[in-house]
Simulated assay, not measured.
Amino acid sequence: MRWFRKNSLFIALMVVLLFTVVGCSSGKPAEKTSKGTEQKAEEKIKVGFIYIGPVGDAGWTYAHDLGRKYLEEKLPYVETTYIENVPESADAERVMTELAQKGYKIIFATSFGYMDYMLNVAKKFPDVIFMHNSGFKTAENMGTYFGRMYQPRYLSGIIAGKMTKVNKIGYVAAHPIPEVIRGINAFTLGVRSVNPNATVKVVWTNTWYDPAAEKEAAKGLLDAGVDVIAQHQDTPGPQQAAEEKGVYAIGYNTDMSSFAPKANLTSPIWNWGPYYVKVVEAVKNGTWTNEQYWGGMADNVVDLAPINSVVPEDVKKLVEEKKQAIINGEFDVFWGPIKDQSGQVKVAEGQKMTDAEMLSFDWFVEGVDGTIPK
C-alpha cells in the first residue's frame, strides 16, 4: 500500500507536468483552415520610401508621407519605413541597397534625381520591385509614376489671373527641368485664359527644399511689384512672404492655407495614398507591371485644394467647369493654339502636345517673363 501511495503521487505529478508543458508550448492556439491544417499568420510586405526632404516640410515630402500612412492604414499586411533627407547622389544608391538587403520588397524613390541610382540597384535585386517618381527610365522590375499636376496648376492660374490687380504675378521655381517648366507654362496658360494682359515673372532658386531661400526669392518678386505669388517649391516660405506683404499666393503640394490663411488662394495638391495601395496590391496579387504611370485629375492623384472665400463665386464656378471638362476629356491644358515667348506658334489650333513633348518641355509659353538656364 505504501508503494502504491508513493508511486501514485509520482504519476499524478507527471500528468500535471505533461499538461503544463503542452499548454505552454505555444503563445496562442494554432490557426486552422477549414480542412484542419495549420496556417501561418500572413507575412508582412515590407515597403520602403526614400524622401528628398524632411517629412515636416509641409510640401512634397509631407504629401508622400501622407500617402505612406494611408497605405499602412488601408493594408494591414504592409509594414513601411522611410528615410528622409536623402540627397540625389550616391547616397541614394546606398540607402536603396540597404533597404533591399533588409528585406524590403517594394521601394519607392520620390525625387527625379534618384533615377539612375535606382536603376543601378534594381539590376542587383531582381526580386525587389522598384518605383521611381517623376522619371522616365524603367527596367524589368522598375516602373515610374507621376501625376499630371499641370492640370490643377492651370486651374490655379485662372484664379491668379482673376485676382491680380496689377497684372504681374510672381513664380518661385526650383530647378529648370521639364517638370517645373511644364508647371510654369500650365499656370501661365491658365492666367492668360482669363487675363491676356497678365505676365508671370519667374525666379529660380536651384533647390527643392530651402525655406529661407524660397522666402527670399518671393520677397524679391514682391519688391519687383507682383501682387500674387505662385511656387514650385517644397515649403510654405513663399506663402508666408505673401502673407506678410498683404498680397495673394498660390501654394503647392499640399493645402498650405494654414500657413498663410489670408494670402493663400488655393494649392495644386498631390494625393498619393490610393496609388500606393494600388501598386502594393498589384505586387501582392502578381499583376504588377513596369508601367510608366502618369495619372491626372480623373484618377484623383492630383487636385486643387479648397479655394479661399475671398475668391468670387463666378471665378469658383469657372474653375469647377474647367475642372470637369478636364476630367471628362473635353479639354486639356496643352491643346493648341499655343505660342512661345517669341510669339511663334508651337502647337497649332486643333492639335495637342503628346506626352513625350510635355515630358521634355524646354521652352516657355507666351506670357512668361524669364529665361531657362542652360
Score class of each variant (00 low, 15 high):
P196G: 05
P196N: 02
N197R: 12
A198T: 08
A198P: 05
T199H: 11
V200R: 00
K201T: 15
V202C: 11
V202Q: 11
V203G: 05
W204N: 07
W204I: 04
T205E: 05
N206E: 12
T207M: 03
W208P: 09
W208H: 04
D210K: 00
A212R: 06
A212S: 13
E214D: 14
E216M: 10
E216P: 00
E216K: 14
E216C: 01
A218I: 13
K219Q: 15
G220W: 08
G220I: 05
L221N: 10
L222R: 09
L222T: 09
D223W: 00
D223L: 13
A224V: 02
G225F: 13
G225V: 12
V226K: 13
D227V: 04
V228C: 06
I229E: 01
A230H: 04
H232M: 09
Q233P: 04
T235C: 13
T235P: 12
P236S: 14
Q239D: 12
Q240E: 15
A241T: 03
A242E: 06
A242W: 05
A242C: 11
A242M: 09
E244A: 15
K245T: 08
G246W: 04
G246D: 06
V247A: 09
Y248Q: 09
I250P: 05
I250S: 03
Y252N: 15
N253D: 14
D255F: 08
S257K: 14
F259H: 14
F259G: 00
A260V: 01
A260Q: 00
A260N: 04
P261D: 08
K262Y: 00
K262R: 12
K262I: 00
A263T: 10
N264E: 11
T266N: 00
P268F: 02
P268G: 03
P268N: 04
P268L: 00
W270H: 14
W272V: 04
G273E: 00
P274M: 01
Y276S: 08
Y276Q: 05
V277A: 00
K278P: 02
K278T: 10
K278Q: 14
K278I: 00
V279Q: 13
V280C: 06
V280I: 14
E281N: 13
A282L: 05
A282Y: 10
V283K: 08
V283T: 09
V283S: 08
K284E: 08
T287H: 00
T289R: 14
N290I: 07
N290G: 08
E291R: 13
E291S: 14
Q292G: 11
Q292D: 09
Y293K: 07
W294S: 08
G295R: 07
G296Y: 12
M297Q: 12
M297W: 04
